[in-house]
Structures are given as structure tokens and as C-alpha cells.
Simulated scan of single mutants.
Amino acid sequence: MQSVTFKNLNGQGVTMAANIHLPEGFDASRKHAAVVVTHPGGGVKEQTAGLYARKLAENGLVAIAFDASYQGASTGEPRQLENPYIRTEDISAVIDYLVTLPYVDAEQIGAMGVCAGGGYTANAAINDRRIKAVGTVSAVNIGQMFRNGWENTVADADALAYIGAGSQARTSDAVNAQLATLPLAPMREEDAPNAELREAWEYYHTPRCEHPNAPGFMTSRSLNQIITYDAYNKAEAFLTQPLQIVAGSVAGSKWMSDDLLARAASKDKQLHVVEGANHMSLYDVPQYVDEAVSVLVPFFQRTLGH
């Protein structure tokens, strides 16, 4: 693994931090396919994104896991900004870096993401034709999730109050030194509304996978961008790349993977359902991660000409 930093060219003055995972016996003198791996909202590259990147590398693919702008070891202020448009652009910024590496084949770049990172990856592929293949694990369209709830039980219009809260937070931020924040996953076990989201608390806030760079919250001002965001916007027309979706059979979030499958214009698209897995278990539970990898690796090998 190589830890790298590079300038993000999207105009925010951010320096990105990333880990490149290389296959055993890596030969820098030849061109390789590469896969960009995007972390969940509130996560960092050392958690599930890094796990999937390492697994891809163990199967012969170059993979890069990175920290989003304003998060982790990447720079940018305010810290913990979760602006979905910037998160989407970050993926293209990583590709901007990859195409400068002599051992990366610029025509063989794929992208995958976990949770909100899956939604951001789909959005990036809609916007950036350099992405030749798309994979998602426990995909979350973060706008849908905040608008419609974890299990799609809330109407869009009923989320208007969240836009108001984001607007109030912006006013508060303008006059106070400390910015308002909001949990992206339950900060305490007793805050979890159900057993599945209790696992989100466990993942981010216990030795299961806690990391000092992943505090688990975002700036409240992010609500203004998130509520109206659709990670799958215009997927019906422009998401034509090969698409491999992986979701757990008992995941409350599975409806967002189903929606991506239905909306994507791709003629080469599949949904693999991992029986018995919920949303969080695909982050790090070995049997479920290994099943996801067993689907994603041949998908990327086939579509990227590896």
C-alpha cells in the first residue's frame, strides 16, 4: 500500500489523501486497470473503503481508497462538510490524479463505493465518461435517504423542515465560531432507531471499526445540498456504463439499490443480493464481504479488460 496526497483540481484548494493498494507482484512498467473506491458518509479510507480496495488488489486490480474533501486526512474547511456535489466531484478528482500515473491505463478505470459512496459513484459515472464500469455495495442515494427515510416511508414534501433546519444552521454558522453539526450515524447506542442502525453506531463508535478521523457527524449546513440531491439524476439517459450492484437481502436500504437498477440506462446491469446480509454487515463481516468481492472482482476484470 502507498499513501499519497495530490491537489484536487475542482477549485476548492483541497489536497486529497489516499491509499493506493497494489497487487502482489505489481509491475510498474506496464499499464494496469484501476478502481476508485469511495467511502460512506461519515467514513474514511481506513474503514470499509480500504477493506474493499485491499480485497480488489489481492485479486490483481490496482485500487485507490481516498478521504473526501473536508474529511479524514484530506484538507479543506469547514471540517466534516458533506456536500454531495463536492463528494461526487471528488471521485473525478481522484481520476484526474490516476491518469497522471504511468502504470494506470486511463481507458481502464472503474469506480465503486459503499453506502453513500455508492450513490456518489453512480453520480460520478453519470457525469464522467472516464469511468468505464460501476460497482456499488449497500448503495445509498443520500438525498433519498434524508428525504424519504431509511426504509422509504416519508414523502418528499415532508422533508421540507430539513431544508429549513439547514438554512437556520447556515445563519447560525455565520454568527458563531462553532459550526452546527448533525449525526450521520447514531452517536450513541441509545440513539439508534432500530437494530440495523444500531450496527452503524457499533461500526463507527466501538472497536469494531472506529477511527479517529471518522467522528460520525457532518455540518448541519450540508442539509441544504443533501435534501434536494439525487445521486441518480439523469441515470435513465446517461448511466450507460456496465453496472454491478450488491445489496443485502435484509437491508433496510435495499430499495435504493433497486431504484438504481431500475433507473440506470446501462444494458449491462446486475443486482446481486447477499442472502442474510443487512446494510452494515456488507461493510466488514467476512462472509458477506467475501461474497460481494467474489462478484465485483470478475465484473471489473471483465469490463475493464484486465
Score class of each variant (00 low, 15 high):
Ser167Gln: 13
Gln12Pro: 00
Ala65Tyr: 08
Leu260Thr: 02
Val175Trp: 03
Tyr120Val: 02
Ser222Leu: 05
Leu182Phe: 10
Tyr120Cys: 01
Ala247Arg: 11
Val36Cys: 01
Ile91Lys: 02
Gln144His: 12
Asn224Phe: 04
Val114Ser: 03
Met280His: 02
Ile126Leu: 14
Ala65Thr: 11
Gly276Cys: 08
Pro215Asn: 10
Asn10Cys: 02
Ala192Gln: 05
Ser249His: 04
Ile95Asn: 04
Ser29Val: 06
Gly42Asp: 03
Met218Gln: 15
Ala28Gly: 10
His205Trp: 01
Asp105Arg: 04
His211Arg: 12
Gly11Ser: 11
Thr38Met: 10
Ile109Gly: 03
Tyr52Lys: 02
Ala157Phe: 05
Phe146Ser: 03
Arg263Asn: 13
Arg30Lys: 15
Met112Asn: 00
Thr5Gln: 15
Thr206Ser: 06
Met112His: 05
Ala53Gly: 07
Pro298Ala: 11
Phe300Ile: 06
Val94Gln: 03
Tyr203Trp: 15
Phe26Gly: 01
Ala265Gln: 09
Tyr85Ala: 04
Gly135Ile: 13
Phe299Met: 09
Lys267Phe: 00
Ala124His: 08
Trp150Val: 15
Met218Thr: 08
Gln225Asp: 15
Ile109Cys: 06
Gly117His: 06
Met145Ala: 11
Ala200Arg: 01
Ser74Trp: 01
Ile227Tyr: 04
Tyr283Met: 04
Ile64Met: 14
Pro102Leu: 02
Ser138Tyr: 02
Leu51Met: 12
Ser294Val: 00
Leu184Cys: 13
Leu223Cys: 14
Ser249Thr: 11
Val134Thr: 03
Cys209Asn: 12
Arg198Met: 08
Ile226His: 02
